[in-house]
Computed example of a mutant assay.
Amino acid sequence: MPISPNQGSTGGGTTVTITGVNLAGATAVHFGSKLATITANTPTSVTVTSPSGAGVVGVDVTTVGGTSNPLNFFYIGAPFAASLSVTSGPTGGGNTVTISGTGLATASSVSFGANSATPTVISDSLISVTVPAGTAAGSVAVSLTTAGGVADGLSYTYIDAPTISSVTPSSGPTSGGTSVTITGTGLTTTESVTIGGASAPFAAISSTTLSVTTPPGTAGAADVVVTTDGGSATAVGGFTYVAGPGI
Protein backbone atom coordinates (compact mmCIF):
# COMPACT_ATOMS: atom_id res chain seq x y z
CA MET A 1 0.00 0.00 0.00
CA PRO A 2 2.10 2.93 -1.25
CA ILE A 3 1.70 6.46 0.12
CA SER A 4 2.51 9.59 -1.90
CA PRO A 5 4.02 11.84 -0.84
CA ASN A 6 5.40 10.16 2.23
CA GLN A 7 6.44 13.45 3.86
CA GLY A 8 4.87 16.80 4.61
CA SER A 9 4.70 19.84 6.84
CA THR A 10 4.48 19.56 10.62
CA GLY A 11 1.61 22.02 10.34
CA GLY A 12 -0.42 19.54 8.30
CA GLY A 13 -2.33 20.41 5.16
CA THR A 14 -0.43 18.10 2.80
CA THR A 15 -2.54 16.28 0.20
CA VAL A 16 -1.62 12.59 0.48
CA THR A 17 -2.83 9.67 -1.65
CA ILE A 18 -2.75 6.12 -0.33
CA THR A 19 -3.13 3.32 -2.87
CA GLY A 20 -3.94 -0.32 -2.37
CA VAL A 21 -6.87 -2.75 -2.62
CA ASN A 22 -10.27 -2.99 -0.97
CA LEU A 23 -10.16 0.67 0.09
CA ALA A 24 -13.71 1.60 -0.92
CA GLY A 25 -15.84 3.05 1.83
CA ALA A 26 -12.90 4.12 3.97
CA THR A 27 -14.21 5.36 7.29
CA ALA A 28 -10.99 6.67 8.80
CA VAL A 29 -7.34 7.35 8.00
CA HIS A 30 -5.01 7.81 10.93
CA PHE A 31 -1.63 9.59 10.98
CA GLY A 32 -0.37 8.18 14.24
CA SER A 33 -3.17 8.93 16.67
CA LYS A 34 -4.65 11.76 14.61
CA LEU A 35 -7.42 11.55 12.05
CA ALA A 36 -6.87 12.87 8.54
CA THR A 37 -9.61 14.47 6.44
CA ILE A 38 -10.70 12.17 3.59
CA THR A 39 -11.23 14.12 0.34
CA ALA A 40 -11.57 11.30 -2.21
CA ASN A 41 -12.03 7.55 -2.11
CA THR A 42 -12.07 4.71 -4.68
CA PRO A 43 -11.63 0.95 -4.33
CA THR A 44 -7.88 1.41 -4.95
CA SER A 45 -7.09 4.76 -3.37
CA VAL A 46 -7.83 7.18 -0.56
CA THR A 47 -6.85 10.85 -0.76
CA VAL A 48 -6.59 12.79 2.48
CA THR A 49 -5.36 16.05 3.96
CA SER A 50 -2.76 15.32 6.60
CA PRO A 51 -3.24 16.55 10.17
CA SER A 52 -0.46 18.34 12.05
CA GLY A 53 2.23 16.19 13.60
CA ALA A 54 5.89 15.61 14.22
CA GLY A 55 8.51 12.97 13.58
CA VAL A 56 7.64 9.69 11.89
CA VAL A 57 4.10 8.31 12.23
CA GLY A 58 2.26 5.28 10.91
CA VAL A 59 -0.59 5.85 8.47
CA ASP A 60 -3.39 3.30 8.24
CA VAL A 61 -6.77 3.07 6.54
CA THR A 62 -9.91 1.73 8.19
CA THR A 63 -12.86 0.29 6.25
CA VAL A 64 -15.77 -1.94 7.26
CA GLY A 65 -13.42 -4.83 6.53
CA GLY A 66 -10.84 -3.77 9.13
CA THR A 67 -7.67 -1.68 9.39
CA SER A 68 -4.73 -1.88 7.03
CA ASN A 69 -1.08 -2.26 7.87
CA PRO A 70 0.59 1.11 8.62
CA LEU A 71 2.94 3.02 6.30
CA ASN A 72 5.49 5.57 7.48
CA PHE A 73 4.88 9.29 6.98
CA PHE A 74 7.64 11.77 7.80
CA TYR A 75 6.79 15.19 9.19
CA ILE A 76 9.19 17.90 8.02
CA GLY A 77 9.74 21.14 9.94
CA ALA A 78 9.21 24.50 8.27
CA PRO A 79 12.27 25.84 6.39
CA PHE A 80 14.13 29.05 7.18
CA ALA A 81 15.92 31.10 4.51
CA ALA A 82 18.75 33.13 6.04
CA SER A 83 20.60 34.76 3.15
CA LEU A 84 21.37 34.95 -0.57
CA SER A 85 24.98 34.74 -1.72
CA VAL A 86 24.23 37.40 -4.36
CA THR A 87 21.39 39.89 -3.97
CA SER A 88 21.32 41.37 -7.48
CA GLY A 89 21.90 40.39 -11.08
CA PRO A 90 20.87 40.87 -14.70
CA THR A 91 17.21 41.17 -15.64
CA GLY A 92 17.80 38.35 -18.12
CA GLY A 93 18.68 35.98 -15.27
CA GLY A 94 21.01 33.05 -15.80
CA ASN A 95 23.39 33.65 -12.91
CA THR A 96 23.69 31.14 -10.07
CA VAL A 97 23.07 32.08 -6.44
CA THR A 98 23.12 30.03 -3.24
CA ILE A 99 20.62 30.27 -0.42
CA SER A 100 21.62 29.36 3.13
CA GLY A 101 19.27 28.49 5.95
CA THR A 102 17.82 25.44 7.70
CA GLY A 103 15.43 22.70 6.64
CA LEU A 104 16.30 23.06 2.95
CA ALA A 105 16.92 19.38 2.09
CA THR A 106 13.49 18.94 0.47
CA ALA A 107 13.48 22.24 -1.45
CA SER A 108 11.53 21.82 -4.68
CA SER A 109 11.26 25.35 -6.06
CA VAL A 110 12.53 28.89 -5.56
CA SER A 111 10.45 31.87 -6.67
CA PHE A 112 11.90 35.22 -7.71
CA GLY A 113 8.82 37.38 -7.85
CA ALA A 114 6.42 35.79 -10.34
CA ASN A 115 9.02 33.43 -11.83
CA SER A 116 10.40 30.25 -10.33
CA ALA A 117 13.26 27.81 -10.80
CA THR A 118 14.17 24.33 -9.56
CA PRO A 119 17.07 24.38 -7.08
CA THR A 120 19.93 21.94 -6.51
CA VAL A 121 20.11 20.75 -2.91
CA ILE A 122 23.66 20.84 -1.56
CA SER A 123 22.81 20.14 2.07
CA ASP A 124 20.06 20.76 4.59
CA SER A 125 21.49 24.25 5.06
CA LEU A 126 22.44 25.18 1.49
CA ILE A 127 20.87 25.11 -1.97
CA SER A 128 21.88 26.65 -5.30
CA VAL A 129 19.61 27.93 -8.02
CA THR A 130 19.91 29.53 -11.45
CA VAL A 131 18.03 32.82 -11.31
CA PRO A 132 15.13 32.95 -13.80
CA ALA A 133 14.62 35.96 -16.05
CA GLY A 134 12.83 38.87 -14.44
CA THR A 135 9.89 40.74 -15.89
CA ALA A 136 11.53 44.14 -15.26
CA ALA A 137 14.34 45.80 -13.38
CA GLY A 138 13.70 46.20 -9.65
CA SER A 139 13.44 44.32 -6.38
CA VAL A 140 11.38 41.12 -6.05
CA ALA A 141 10.59 38.81 -3.15
CA VAL A 142 12.39 35.47 -2.96
CA SER A 143 10.69 32.44 -1.45
CA LEU A 144 11.46 28.74 -1.42
CA THR A 145 9.15 25.76 -1.09
CA THR A 146 10.00 22.53 0.74
CA ALA A 147 8.01 19.58 2.00
CA GLY A 148 7.84 21.44 5.30
CA GLY A 149 6.36 24.63 3.92
CA VAL A 150 7.44 27.96 2.46
CA ALA A 151 10.28 30.24 3.59
CA ASP A 152 10.38 33.87 2.53
CA GLY A 153 11.71 37.20 3.75
CA LEU A 154 14.53 37.55 1.22
CA SER A 155 14.72 39.92 -1.76
CA TYR A 156 16.65 40.08 -5.01
CA THR A 157 17.17 43.05 -7.33
CA TYR A 158 17.06 42.69 -11.10
CA ILE A 159 19.34 45.15 -12.90
CA ASP A 160 19.08 46.10 -16.56
CA ALA A 161 22.17 45.65 -18.73
CA PRO A 162 24.27 48.80 -19.18
CA THR A 163 24.57 50.81 -22.37
CA ILE A 164 27.39 52.99 -23.74
CA SER A 165 26.43 56.09 -25.71
CA SER A 166 29.79 57.86 -25.97
CA VAL A 167 33.49 57.71 -25.12
CA THR A 168 35.12 61.15 -24.83
CA PRO A 169 37.80 61.75 -25.92
CA SER A 170 37.78 58.82 -28.31
CA SER A 171 41.53 58.69 -28.91
CA GLY A 172 44.80 59.00 -27.07
CA PRO A 173 48.41 57.81 -26.92
CA THR A 174 49.43 54.14 -26.80
CA SER A 175 51.21 54.90 -23.53
CA GLY A 176 47.83 55.23 -21.83
CA GLY A 177 46.96 57.71 -19.12
CA THR A 178 44.21 59.51 -21.04
CA SER A 179 41.28 60.63 -18.87
CA VAL A 180 38.11 59.44 -20.61
CA THR A 181 34.44 59.99 -19.80
CA ILE A 182 32.07 57.17 -20.69
CA THR A 183 28.38 58.05 -20.81
CA GLY A 184 25.48 55.64 -21.02
CA THR A 185 22.91 54.03 -18.72
CA GLY A 186 22.96 51.54 -15.87
CA LEU A 187 26.54 52.35 -14.87
CA THR A 188 26.10 52.62 -11.08
CA THR A 189 27.09 49.01 -10.35
CA THR A 190 30.07 48.94 -12.74
CA GLU A 191 32.48 46.18 -11.76
CA SER A 192 35.11 46.60 -14.45
CA VAL A 193 36.10 48.56 -17.56
CA THR A 194 38.44 47.19 -20.22
CA ILE A 195 39.91 48.94 -23.24
CA GLY A 196 41.40 46.66 -25.84
CA GLY A 197 41.11 43.83 -23.34
CA ALA A 198 43.23 45.58 -20.70
CA SER A 199 41.74 46.58 -17.36
CA ALA A 200 41.24 50.34 -16.91
CA PRO A 201 40.96 52.21 -13.58
CA PHE A 202 37.53 53.83 -13.24
CA ALA A 203 35.18 55.67 -10.94
CA ALA A 204 31.40 55.60 -11.19
CA ILE A 205 30.28 59.23 -11.11
CA SER A 206 26.58 58.46 -11.59
CA SER A 207 24.27 55.98 -13.26
CA THR A 208 25.09 57.64 -16.58
CA THR A 209 28.77 58.58 -16.23
CA LEU A 210 32.10 56.84 -15.66
CA SER A 211 35.50 58.45 -15.34
CA VAL A 212 38.17 56.15 -16.79
CA THR A 213 41.94 56.27 -17.25
CA THR A 214 43.14 54.40 -20.32
CA PRO A 215 45.71 51.64 -19.86
CA PRO A 216 48.63 51.28 -22.33
CA GLY A 217 47.54 49.80 -25.65
CA THR A 218 48.44 48.98 -29.22
CA ALA A 219 47.96 51.53 -31.99
CA GLY A 220 44.53 51.21 -33.60
CA ALA A 221 40.88 50.96 -32.64
CA ALA A 222 40.11 49.18 -29.35
CA ASP A 223 36.83 47.91 -27.94
CA VAL A 224 35.58 49.51 -24.74
CA VAL A 225 33.72 47.07 -22.46
CA VAL A 226 31.82 48.04 -19.31
CA THR A 227 30.66 45.23 -17.01
CA THR A 228 28.06 45.78 -14.28
CA ASP A 229 25.85 43.63 -12.06
CA GLY A 230 23.36 43.76 -14.92
CA GLY A 231 25.69 42.49 -17.65
CA SER A 232 28.09 44.03 -20.16
CA ALA A 233 28.06 46.69 -22.86
CA THR A 234 30.63 47.05 -25.64
CA ALA A 235 31.54 50.08 -27.70
CA VAL A 236 33.21 48.38 -30.68
CA GLY A 237 36.31 50.36 -31.59
CA GLY A 238 35.22 52.96 -29.06
CA PHE A 239 38.72 54.23 -28.36
CA THR A 240 41.59 54.61 -30.79
CA TYR A 241 45.19 54.34 -29.65
CA VAL A 242 47.49 56.67 -31.55
CA ALA A 243 51.22 55.90 -31.82
CA GLY A 244 53.61 58.68 -30.89
CA PRO A 245 55.82 60.37 -33.47
CA GLY A 246 59.30 59.09 -34.27
CA ILE A 247 62.25 60.65 -36.09
Rank of each mutant, 00 (worst) to 15 (best):
S108I: 04
G148P: 01
G103S: 06
T106N: 11
V21N: 15
T218F: 02
A147M: 03
G13R: 06
F239C: 11
G176C: 00
A200C: 07
T42V: 03
A233W: 07
T157H: 03
P43V: 15
S45M: 03
N6P: 06
T14F: 09
E191S: 15
V16N: 01
T178C: 00
A36N: 08
P132M: 13
T96M: 12
T146S: 05
T62V: 11
A147S: 13
G58V: 02
V193Q: 11
S33L: 12
A136S: 14
T190I: 10
T188C: 00
A136W: 01
G217R: 09
V21G: 06
P173N: 08
I247K: 11
T130R: 01
S108F: 02
T174I: 13
P90N: 11
V242M: 03
K34D: 14
T174A: 08
I99T: 05
F80Y: 11
A198G: 07
A136C: 06
T234K: 05
T146H: 12
N6F: 14
T163H: 04
A233I: 09
T208L: 07
T47S: 13
A204L: 09
S116D: 15
T135K: 05
A204V: 15
S155K: 12
T14W: 08
T47K: 11
P51H: 07
A233G: 08
V21P: 00
I159F: 06
V86T: 15
S125T: 14
V193L: 13
T10L: 07
I159H: 00
A36R: 03
T37K: 14
S52N: 11
G149D: 10
G196V: 01
I38D: 01
S45P: 05
A136N: 11
V142N: 06
A161M: 07
S4L: 10
V16E: 03
A235E: 05
T19W: 10
A24I: 11
A233Y: 02
